Computed example of a mutant assay.
Amino acid sequence: MNTYTGHESLNEQIKIVAAGAAKLPGVVIIHSIVDWTITWMSEYGLKGLEISLEEVTSISAQEYYSRFFNEEDSKDYVPKILGLLERNNDDEIVTYFQQVRVSGKS
């Protein structure tokens, strides 16, 4: 099992995630929890959104969410997720259903 020890670079860790993500039947996304921007997205997600890794990692979190997600739903679940991360309580969970606009089309 590969675990982050603080000594590896972020790029090395992303390579590990990418290798596993290629085998999964879904989209894998790594966010920066500092500003919620995208740090990395699996190829499956990039193809679905019709966007390059360079483009998705260069846009703001606000643009990413308004372009690809239902904004009304985001108003509900984003504060819940942020609160979960801030509290850092292993006994707490948050569930949500996220509607994604493929290719940013309405």
Rank of each mutant, 00 (worst) to 15 (best):
E86I: 07
F68C: 11
E71T: 15
E72S: 15
S74I: 14
F69G: 01
L85I: 10
E55V: 03
I51E: 05
L84W: 06
S58F: 09
Q62P: 04
G83Y: 12
E71V: 15
E72P: 14
S66D: 14
S58M: 10
N70F: 11
E55C: 05
L53H: 12
E63F: 10
V56G: 01
I51S: 03
G83V: 10
V56P: 04
V56R: 05
G48F: 00
D35P: 06
R87G: 00
Q62L: 13
G45Q: 06
A61D: 09
W36H: 09
A61W: 00
P79S: 10
L84K: 13
E50I: 09
E63W: 11
L49D: 02
I33E: 10
V78L: 15
L53R: 04
I81K: 01
S60H: 01
W40A: 02
E71W: 15
L82C: 14
Y77K: 01
L84I: 11
W36D: 06
E86T: 04
L53G: 07
R67M: 12
D76S: 13
E50D: 11
E72K: 15
W36Y: 11
Q62H: 13
Y64I: 11
Y64R: 08
N70V: 11
F69L: 12
R87C: 11
V34D: 09
D35Q: 10
E43Q: 08
I33A: 11
N88M: 10
K75R: 15
I81S: 09
P79Q: 05
T57I: 10
S74L: 15
G45I: 02
L49M: 02
L84A: 10
Q62I: 12
L46P: 02
F69P: 03
S60K: 12
L84V: 11
Y77F: 13
E54V: 01
F68P: 01
I33R: 08
A61E: 08
K75F: 12
F68A: 05
S60A: 08
Y44A: 07
L84R: 06
S52R: 06
Y64H: 14
N88Q: 10
S66I: 13
N70I: 12
S52Y: 04
Q62A: 13
S60T: 06
I59Y: 00
S60W: 07
G48V: 04
S60D: 07
D73R: 13
E63D: 12
V34E: 08
R87S: 05
I51N: 04
A61N: 01
T39Q: 00
I33L: 12
S74D: 13
I33V: 14
M41E: 04
M41D: 03
L82H: 14
V34T: 08
I51H: 03
S52D: 08
T39V: 06
T37A: 09
E55Y: 00
E54D: 00
T57Y: 07
M41R: 01
D76Q: 14
M41P: 04
L84F: 12
T39A: 00
F68R: 02
I51G: 01
E50K: 09
E86Q: 13
K75Y: 10
R87T: 08
